[in-house]
Amino acid sequence: MTPSLARSLLAPLAAAVLAATMAGAPASAAPAPRADPPAEVVRHSAEESPSESLAYWTEERMAAARPITRVLEGATGGLLPQSPPDASPEGEPRPQSSAVTGKRWTGGGKVAQATGRVFLTMGGRDFTCTASVVPSDNGDTVVTAGHCLKDGTGDWASKWVFVPGYDDGEAPYGRFAARELLVTSQWSRRADDSHDFGAAVLEAREGRHVRQATGAQRIAFTGKGAGTVHAFGYPSRSPYDGRHLYYCSGPTRPDDGGTTAHGMACDMTEGSSGGPWLSGFDPSTGTGTVVSVVSFKYAGRDGVQYGPVLGSSERAVYDRARAL
């Protein structure tokens, strides 16, 4: 990838790493296309109380929160405020969207319960992302993109709140504040686009865990491509407004831009960052297996979104989070 090719991220991707395993199943080794350092997890405890985080997010602040945009030009950059709707981060007109347009999900089921909108503060600004509930010992673990938790090598998010089943301002299953944030060491130490993955551990509300309220989607760490998936999220940049859950579906293919991520045709915009890619999705029940999360787009290629391959580094984050 040349320095002139900027990337506008919905959120970066994960590594083509070893361990193949589904949550709750034993791991089996698989050859990796490149060697990664031993999996490490970087963890951050919330500095504010759950009540402080929940109180911060008034209806007005939630409505004003902007999706995260990250711009790279050959080197790691920081999180920047959202660009104007009709311009790229460089101020140039955005290209036409792909013919694969995100559709509003109206089928209900588990995906409408366990997928939710995230609200967070980072660098003094209010942002929004997407996350999904997954199985855990604590009943309070959600997965999302690393950049929805930490600004690469920079700041951690604060006032991190998950609203499962969010729909046009409604919170049918309640709102849950994060008590722990975790990302891959590759994301924390060098903003590695191939490992843009993380997890948040939520605080139970009045003794009720988020998984009890919403159920959870399975998750797998195969170290391989995602295949054909349904990708869900709350896109918040025009022509979307973040009020409803949307999805795209189709095959995925390896990134040709220098990461180990895979991409799929989809015009969903920022705000869907961290949303689940579900393999084996059953529209009648809204169930599937999380095999990636929405991560980033390349500037000038708005019609393709990318997500990390979930391997050993991502598995380490999940294993640590679900036991906290």
Rank of each mutant, 00 (worst) to 15 (best):
G311N: 02
A87I: 04
F232G: 01
K159A: 12
D319R: 04
K110R: 09
D167Y: 13
I219T: 04
G198Y: 00
P276V: 14
R190Y: 09
V133G: 15
L310M: 13
Y246H: 11
T130Q: 06
T287H: 05
M268N: 02
D302M: 08
A15V: 06
Y173L: 10
F162N: 03
G109I: 00
A321H: 07
A20G: 04
S188I: 00
P93A: 14
C266Q: 01
A216M: 04
E170K: 12
G169D: 09
Y318H: 10
I68F: 02
D192C: 05
A316G: 01
T228C: 07
Y56D: 08
A157P: 11
T21I: 04
G227W: 07
A261T: 13
F127N: 06
R189T: 14
E90Y: 13
V143N: 07
K110W: 07
L13P: 03
R243S: 14
A19M: 05
A25V: 10
G311E: 00
S312A: 15
V142S: 03
L182C: 03
C248Q: 03
R211I: 15
T285M: 14
W156N: 00
S28C: 04
S4I: 08
G77Q: 10
R66L: 06
G223M: 01
A191Y: 03
A15T: 07
G280I: 10
D140F: 01
D36W: 10
V41L: 02
A65L: 04
A55K: 15
G303K: 00
G286W: 00
F119L: 14
S45M: 06
G109A: 05
L80I: 15
G124R: 04
S295K: 02
T269A: 10
R61M: 14
V111S: 02
R253G: 09
R208G: 04
W187N: 12
N138A: 08
A112Y: 01
G286Y: 00
G275A: 06
V17G: 09
A64Y: 05
D282Q: 09
F119Y: 15
V71F: 06
V142P: 03
H262L: 01
F281T: 09
D255G: 07
L54N: 05
E180D: 09
Y56R: 14
G78E: 02
A157Y: 01
R34K: 14
D126E: 11
R320F: 01
I219S: 04
R218A: 10
P93N: 10
Y246K: 00
A23K: 07
G274S: 11
L10S: 15
P81M: 11
M268D: 04
W277L: 11
R175S: 12
V71T: 12
P37A: 12
G146W: 00
M22I: 13
P172H: 08
L9Q: 12
T285L: 08
H44A: 08
